Amino acid sequence: MPELPEVETIRRTLNQLVVGKTIDRVKVLLPRIIQRPEDVEEFCFLLAGQTMRSVERRGKFLRFVMDDYTLVSHLRMEGRYGLYDRNDPLELHTHVVFSFTDGSELRYKDVRQFGTMHLFPKGQEFEENPLKKLGIEPLAEAFTLEAFRAKLAGRSTKIKPLLLNQEYIVGIGNIYVDESLFVAGIHPEREARSLTRKETAALHSAIVSTLQDAVRAGGSSIKSYVNGQGEIGMFQHQLKMYGRKAESCYNCDHPIEKTVLAGRGTHYCPKCQPMKRKRAKKVKGALRP
Rank of each mutant, 00 (worst) to 15 (best):
L14Y: 05
N15H: 08
Q16T: 12
Q16S: 13
L17D: 11
L17S: 08
G20C: 05
T22I: 04
V26N: 09
V26H: 06
K27H: 03
K27Y: 02
V28Q: 07
L29K: 09
L30C: 05
R32M: 15
I33Q: 07
I33V: 15
I34E: 08
Q35C: 09
Q35T: 09
R36C: 02
P37D: 03
E38R: 14
D39T: 07
D39I: 08
E41C: 02
E41A: 13
E41Q: 12
L46T: 10
L46K: 15
A48T: 14
G49P: 07
Q50R: 00
Q50F: 02
Q50V: 05
T51N: 02
M52F: 05
R53L: 14
V55I: 14
V55K: 08
V55R: 08
R57D: 04
F61A: 03
F61V: 02
L62C: 02
L62Y: 04
L62V: 02
L62F: 06
F64T: 03
F64W: 14
V65S: 11
V65K: 13
M66L: 08
Y69K: 01
Y69T: 00
R76W: 00
L83K: 02
D85I: 01
D85N: 12
D85S: 13
P89G: 03
P89C: 03
E91K: 12
H93T: 09
V97S: 07
V97N: 01
V97H: 00
V97G: 01
F98M: 04
S99A: 14
F100R: 01
T101G: 05
G103H: 07
K109E: 13
D110W: 04
V111M: 14
V111N: 09
R112V: 13
R112A: 13
G115C: 09
H118K: 11
H118Y: 15
H118C: 11
L119Q: 09
F120G: 01
K122N: 13
Q124E: 15
Q124A: 15
Q124C: 12
